[in-house]
């Protein structure tokens, strides 16, 4: 974990209300693992006061990228950054996906909405490991889809403007019987409702599944105790989303 004053390189719109912020951050770019995040100070004064957490979307050389929707003050401030600005970035933070484990042969990457964020970095690592890759994306409609830097992509949209009409979980359910995935494991990120449905789907079929959660955070590295995630039957009642997560085995947590 480092704190870097990072030069903004660019902010570009890649889909409707969806932006990629690219910044210079050598130490984070070289050490980040798929599923980890950064906590970014978006303003110099106290408006907004707290940092904002974002998954690392891509990392290459000395640069990192995050992808975000403008949903409030913090993300609006980020959207307005330009190559004249510097942002203070804390990271890489959190526990990554266990892509290195030997326990699976096919990685099924599932992204709902901007849950696509950690998938390109995951794709890169999985490809290098020689794993089979399937990517399933869900979005509200085609204009929100972000399909770059992924492999073997299947899409669904809520309004049917592209791919299957329905959710990413519906799409996964329709694909599963038709595909011959050898020992699959799901790696997912998305809204809590989707992860809950996906978790049930995976557990019912005995498919291992790791999900990346989001929720309110203050520090992002374990000192405020502000981000509890309920555990099902661990020795303790809660884990910390920022430190023990944001990635969790779906069987460990109660969503």
């Amino acid at each position: 974990m480092v704190q870097e004053q990072s030069q903004v390189i660019s902010v570009s719109e890649v889909a409707r209300n969806t932006y990629v912020l690219r910044f210079h951050s050598p130490r984070i770019a070289r050490s980040v693992l798929a599923g980890q995040f950064v906590n970014i100070a978006v303003a110099d004064d106290c408006d907004p006061l707290l940092r904002r957490p974002f998954s690392i979307y891509r990392a290459h050389g000395d640069t990192c990228e995050i992808i975000f929707n403008v949903v409030g003050k913090g993300t609006l401030a980020l959207q307005k950054k330009s190559s004249r600005d510097v942002v203070n970035v804390l990271g890489p933070l959190g526990t990554p996906y266990s892509l290195e484990s030997e326990g699976f042969m096919t990685a099924v990457l599932v992204g709902g909405g901007l849950g696509v964020a950690p998938l390109p970095l995951s794709t890169l690592i999985l490809r290098n490991k020689g794993k089979e890759l399937v990517t399933i994306l869900g979005a509200r409609s085609s204009e929100y889809l972000v399909e770059q830097h992924l492999e073997n992509v299947h899409v669904s949209t809520d309004d049917g403007t592209k791919g299957m009409k329905g959710t990413a979980v519906d799409l996964l359910a329709s694909l599963l019987p038709t595909q011959r995935w050898k020992s699959p494991k799901i790696f997912a990120c998305g809204p809590t409702g989707m992860l809950r449905a996906l978790g049930k789907f995976a557990v019912d079929r005995n498919i291992p599944c790791e999900v990346s959660l989001e929720g309110p955070m203050a520090c992002g590295f374990g000192i405020c105790q502000g981000c509890p995630v309920e555990l099902v039957d661990g020795r303790s009642r809660y884990a910390l989303m920022c430190k023990d997560g944001p990635v969790f085995d779906i069987r460990r947590i109660s969503l």
Binding site: C46, D47, P48, L49, L50, G215, P216, M217, A218, C224, Q225, G226, C227, P228, V229, E230, S236, R237, Y238
Partner: peptide, 25 residues
């Protein structure tokens, strides 16, 4: 003894500040 603390949601940002109910975890 260790304390688990309060259930989520424990924190929320407010204008120029934040509210917390960590529950002394």
């Amino acid at each position: 003894n260790p304390r688990e603390g309060n259930p989520p949601t424990r924190i929320v940002e407010t204008p120029s500040g934040m509210l917390n109910s960590i529950g002394l975890a």
